[in-house]
């Protein structure tokens, strides 16, 4: 039968894997909706400066607290109304997507890279290296994440960049633990022994041989962390420790809007809705990714 087996090139294998992934991912309707919304958000974030109808940080004189266009007293040129000092709501929300996507990407990248390196080292070398590293991770995990992030921001000083660093530090142990667990189970496999026998060095073993086989759970965790990062950064902004006014970050916008909650509903409602929709879209996507990447669920 050997003459009927087809030898696939690497590119073909990759294409088949992608097709299989899409097959499982697309069976989850929510995940597809989440993906579409997420792509729209990314698009909005990248082209924010071109699609905003008004300057997001410029107050328009005499236009303060205008309700949305469809409500009584609304102005059609300010579709979602204006905030307390007359800045266009819609433009600020669009600009805000840029902050949120940027926060998500930066936080997840730092936490992912840091966690992978730390987890690989701990899992690969084991022994006291592993013990020391994992105890340090335990310490970070002992603090409620938002509290630790707040305190780190207090040390680093309030601001968007410091908030992102703080959140990334707090998230990083999750990636380290996942990587370590995956590495430890992969290390016992024959293919690793084979690579070692054929002379692969430690670095090659870690990054080239083992890491690609641990990616599934890491991708799922990265998606979940992306949405938590958006949420936590907004919470820090809301508490005055994240992006600083007049930045159009959604959490910061909410903090400024607090005093108008009973009088001008739209100033409070829209930024929160934007946070909810983004986080929900990413979580929906995460559920689909887990279905598609977790082999245990695939079989059932």
């Amino acid at each position: 039968m050997s003459d009927t087996t087809v030898k696939l090139t690497d590119a073909q294998i990759r294409r088949r894997m992608l097709a299989e992934f899409w097959f499982y991912f697309s069976r989850n309707r929510g995940a597809v909706v989440g993906l579409v919304v997420f792509v729209l958000l990314v698009f909005m974030a990248i082209f924010a400066d071109f699609i905003v109808p008004h300057n997001p940080i410029l107050p328009y004189e005499g236009m303060a607290k205008l309700p949305p266009a469809w409500a009584e007293g609304g102005n059609p040129s300010f579709l979602l109304g204006t905030d307390a000092i007359g800045r266009d709501m819609l433009s600020r929300l669009i600009k805000g997507s840029q902050y949120s996507m940027f926060i998500g990407v930066v936080v997840v990248s730092i936490a992912l890279v840091g966690g992978i390196v730390i987890g690989l080292v701990a899992g690969f070398f084991g022994g006291w290296v592993d013990t020391v590293i994992m105890r340090v991770m335990d310490v970070i995990l002992a603090f409620p994440s938002l509290l630790l992030a707040l305190v780190l921001v207090a040390v680093l000083g309030p601001g968007l960049i410091n908030a992102m660093i703080a959140i990334a530090i707090v998230y990083q142990p999750h990636f380290a633990r996942l990587t370590r667990a995956a590495v430890m189970s992969e290390l016992r496999r024959d293919y690793v022994a084979a690579a070692r026998v054929s002379g692969a060095g430690n670095l090659r073993l870690m990054f080239k041989t083992i890491l690609p086989n641990c990616l599934g759970p890491l991708i799922v965790q990265a998606t979940l962390s992306f949405s938590s990062a958006v949420l936590d950064a907004a919470a820090l902004g809301f508490l005055g420790m994240g992006a600083q006014p007049p930045a159009a970050e959604w959490g910061t916008m909410l903090a400024e809007a607090r005093e108008f909650i009973t009088s001008h509903w739209w100033i409070v409602t829209f930024p929160g809705l934007a946070i909810l929709i983004s986080v929900l879209a990413i979580n929906l996507m995460g559920d689909g990714l887990r279905d598609a990447l977790d082999p245990k669920l695939k079989r059932s």
């Binding site: 929510g30 949420l231 959490g251 909410l254 409070v268 409602t269 929900l280 979580n283």
Partner: peptide, 25 residues
């Protein structure tokens, strides 16, 4: 389960403000 996912994604600081608008305001 859809509701649970929405709850799981909720920015609770905003959720609190919304409830204040509705139930207190």
């Amino acid at each position: 389960m859809s509701a649970a996912l929405v709850g799981f994604s909720m920015p609770i600081f905003w959720w609190g403000l919304l409830l204040i608008i509705v139930f207190s305001g």
